[in-house]
């Protein structure tokens, strides 16, 4: 079974984070929510592995509680 990777894979975590925040610059909260939803769909399709995606969803939901 494929495993969700939780170790860091970014070569520059700070550069990624900056780009992520920059993507949302000047957007309203509604626009940002839409951008985030699209981003998740794009990345989920890229990953394409249902097992991995389900593990990620469980972690995300569990943490949010």
């Amino acid at each position: 079974m494929a495993q969700l990777i939780t170790e860091n894979r970014f070569s520059s975590p700070d550069a990624f984070y900056e780009a992520l925040i920059e993507t949302h610059r000047d957007l309203t909260p509604e626009q940002s929510a839409k951008v985030n939803a699209k981003l998740i769909l794009l990345l989920a399709n890229h990953i394409g592995d249902m097992e991995v995606l389900q593990q990620a969803m469980i972690v995300a939901r569990g943490e949010a509680g």
């Binding site: 939780t6 860091n8 975590p13 925040i21 929510a33």
Partner: peptide, 29 residues
């Protein structure tokens, strides 16, 4: 911004259990 704060808090919450998220937490490099 609100979304920036949401991502920040999400990274902090994930950092408690997810090693990758610790590398995103930035309290000053």
């Amino acid at each position: 911004s609100e979304v920036s704060r949401t991502f920040r808090d999400a990274a902090l919450e994930l950092a408690a259990t997810q090693p990758f998220a610790r590398s995103l937490v930035n309290s000053g490099r």
